[in-house]
């Protein structure tokens, strides 16, 4: 059985407590789902979270230890993960080496690769959903927006997913069909943020987000991205046309990045989702073979 010791957070559909597993005294997080508060019954977000966490078992995905019912509420018992990547990025007293960033990116890619292999799109990858275990392992959390990949291109999907700054251009332009490439984009942007230590593309509105994205990476043309002009929001943003950045401009912005790091980042944020690398390809990138080797998880920087 489990104890709920202290309330640590409350969202629209759940209250999170820190607690312990009685037999082992292991520290756990207990997420209590509010059951009776919604007009339409169990909340979709909660159902998705439970549905996908039940299936995902991977060192880089948060582990669902148990589900129990108490007082008519559903309680999810999750591993207790005290910090996240966003906290570290914002903590200016912590210095990241290239090997550290490589280690985190590798763990993120492995976790997302596992999701995609299971035909699951996460759809909300961002630094504060990358939780960090005391032993340095990175664990992808929050499957409240996840869904199964579409079986055919005819299945309509909603483009209003992913936190704005990490949202791929096809989503910003209102695509009704998309793939794992949306998650790869988010990881590419998180990679950029690890290097810059500030959000890379930080729009204040959805419209501004698309403008900033095009300004930074170039306005895509139908000759480079077949069919982009058929996306609902393309026309509005196709002029003025921003040129793609030169390699030199990117090197100036990401001044500490190696060539291999820049190559991998660029391949993850190619505008055309079909040309963007997959997680399989990204994991085989030269970046991960080149020195320095990724930092061992136990030796990664921790929050000061």
């Amino acid at each position: 059985m489990y104890t709920k010791d202290k309330k640590v957070g409350e969202g629209t559909f759940a209250i999170v407590y820190v607690g312990r597993q009685a037999e082992t005294d292991r520290k756990v997080a207990v997420k209590m789902i509010k059951v009776n508060e919604f007009k339409n019954g169990l909340d979709m977000t909660a159902i998705r979270e439970i549905k996908f966490l039940q299936e995902m078992r991977h060192p880089n995905v948060i582990e669902l230890l148990d589900v129990f019912v108490a007082d008519g509420n559903i309680n999810l018992v999750l591993e207790f993960l005290p910090s996240d990547l966003e906290m570290l990025i914002r903590d200016r007293s912590v210095v990241f080496s290239e090997a550290d960033m490589k280690s985190w990116l590798l763990m993120m890619l492995r976790g997302v690769h596992h999701c995609h292999r299971n035909f699951v799109l996460h759809r909300d990858l961002k630094p504060n959903n990358m939780l960090l275990a005391p032993d340095g392992q990175l664990k992808i959390a929050d499957f409240g927006l996840a869904r199964a990949m579409a079986l055919t291109p005819y299945e309509r999907m909603t483009p209003t997913v992913v936190t704005r700054w990490y949202r791929a251009p096809e989503l910003l332009m209102g695509a009704r069909h998309y793939t794992g490439a949306v998650d790869v984009w988010s990881l590419g942007i998180i990679f950029a943020e690890l290097m810059l230590r500030v959000p890379y593309l930080a729009g204040q509105t959805d419209e501004e987000q698309l403008e900033i994205t095009f300004k930074a990476l170039g306005t895509p043309l139908p000759s480079q991205w077949k069919g982009v002009d058929a996306l609902p929001e393309y026309r509005k943003f196709s002029t003025p046309r921003h040129p793609a950045p030169t390699r030199q401009q990117l090197q100036e912005l990401f001044s500490a990045a190696s060539d291999a790091a820049l190559d991998l980042m660029c391949s993850m944020i190619i505008m055309d989702p079909i040309k963007r690398v997959t997680t399989d390809e990204a994991l085989l990138a030269a970046y991960f073979r080149d020195a320095p080797a990724p930092t061992r998880t136990t030796e990664l920087p921790k929050k000061s």
Partner: peptide
């Protein structure tokens, strides 16, 4: 009536909701 039973249903399913079907392999 439905909302009352929804929770019981999910509990009876042991909180698993993923149903793999033959449509993906068929494709």
């Amino acid at each position: 009536q439905i909302l009352d039973l929804e929770f019981l249903l999910f509990k009876t399913l042991e909180f698993t909701a993923t149903v793999h079907n033959g449509l993906r392999p068929l494709h």
